[in-house]
Design a protein around this nucleic acid. Structure first.
Lengths: 205, 205
DNA sequence: GTCTATAAACCGATAGAC
DNA sequence: GTCTATCGGTTTATAGAC
């Protein structure tokens, strides 16, 4: 065989494969957001990407692993957004910014909703290490902000940190955004403001 | 044929059919809550009720109509709960009581979650008159309370009544309840208190 | 009305040619 | 690696005997 030096950078083929996989995950993320895991079919994903279904299975061994890869990439994007927050911001405002970002993604149809316990995919995710890894990192990051905000009385110190964390996650999938959008009386920007406000300040204030 | 007088009350057979249908809807409501519409199969429903699948189709012509009947009955129960609220209570406290009731049902595994736009069932519901009828009645009832509470400054007058209504509906399906329950650190009663509190008073207070 | 048995459609996954 | 074609399993819905 020809003795060639191993290239330090990924080969053209590898780069192309990476590019293809990214396109697949873009489609999956959108389809998961629009139809959910159960109603999304592999035929549909393949058609949306523009490749044959069999080719899909060369990249991902199963429907579950495909969804898991998509969700893991979403968490990566979330971590980027978390680390992008300016240091000088108050913890509460950083948390608000993350909620805003999540709802914004939701309104653009790019936020998959994975029912907490009711979907067949949930089990698969818990067994997917890269996903769990990122969930833990995200939990640690946001947990620090939450504790800091509670110490500074920016968030209620009477609430368990858990419910604050879960609530922040959940607001990104809140169907209230869909209802308001369907009504047509509000712009996306209005909806984001309203949801962030009711999340942090409640209905009473 | 024997000339018999038509009975004024439902015959025994009719009563038995009503009883059977109620048992079916009990199963459907629980299965919808546990697995959702897409993952619930007609075989499963039949097995849970203890009848054959073909018998199920004698009562309900399709899976969609079965789910629609179950959802309509849930709204009937909700309207009963709404009308049961004591007159002397403040509007805000009546609304809180309904939220408590909804979350309580959720924690008991008796609150179907029907994604706002993403499920195949949602379309069917919008074409099911009895369901729409009850949604409208419920909207009117709660809408009155909301406006009254806003006038009395019990709820923020700056918020559109719509978002308050939708938020109250949505909290009954909030996955935060599932997350907290999975953690195991809180009783159902604790979870209800926490969710009602964050719903009305936010994370800040 | 209730049952068993089956039709018809759909979907995840794979075989095999190129 | 990508394609076409197909398998095997599941699900909704129905036919027909009792």
């Amino acid at each position: 065989m020809n003795a060639t030096i191993t290239p330090k950078k990924p080969s053209f083929k590898q780069q192309q494969m990476q590019f293809r996989e990214n396109a697949i995950l873009d489609s999956v993320n959108r389809l998961l957001s629009q139809k959910g895991f159960d109603l999304m079919t592999m035929d549909e994903v393949a058609a949306d990407v523009g490749i044959a279904k069999a080719s899909l299975y060369k990249h991902f061994p199963s429907k579950e692993s495909l969804a898991a890869a998509s969700m893991t990439r979403l968490l990566d994007h979330t971590l980027v957004e978390v680390n992008r927050q300016p240091q000088h911001l108050e913890s509460k405002d950083k948390l608000k910014a993350i909620v805003r970002w999540g709802i914004s993604l939701h309104l653009q149809g790019e936020m998959p909703y994975l029912p907490s316990t009711r979907s067949s995919i949930q089990q698969a995710l818990l067994g997917h290490e890269p996903y769990i890894e990122r969930i833990q990192e995200l939990t640690t990051q946001l947990g620090d902000w939450i504790l800091d905000a509670q110490e500074k009385r920016q968030l209620s110190a009477a609430l368990p940190a858990e419910i604050i964390l879960y609530t922040i996650f959940a607001r990104a999938c809140d169907p209230v955004a869909d209802f308001l959008k369907m009504g047509g009386a509000f712009t996306d920007s209005d909806i984001i403001d309203l949801l962030v406000h009711t999340c942090f300040d409640g209905l009473t204030s």
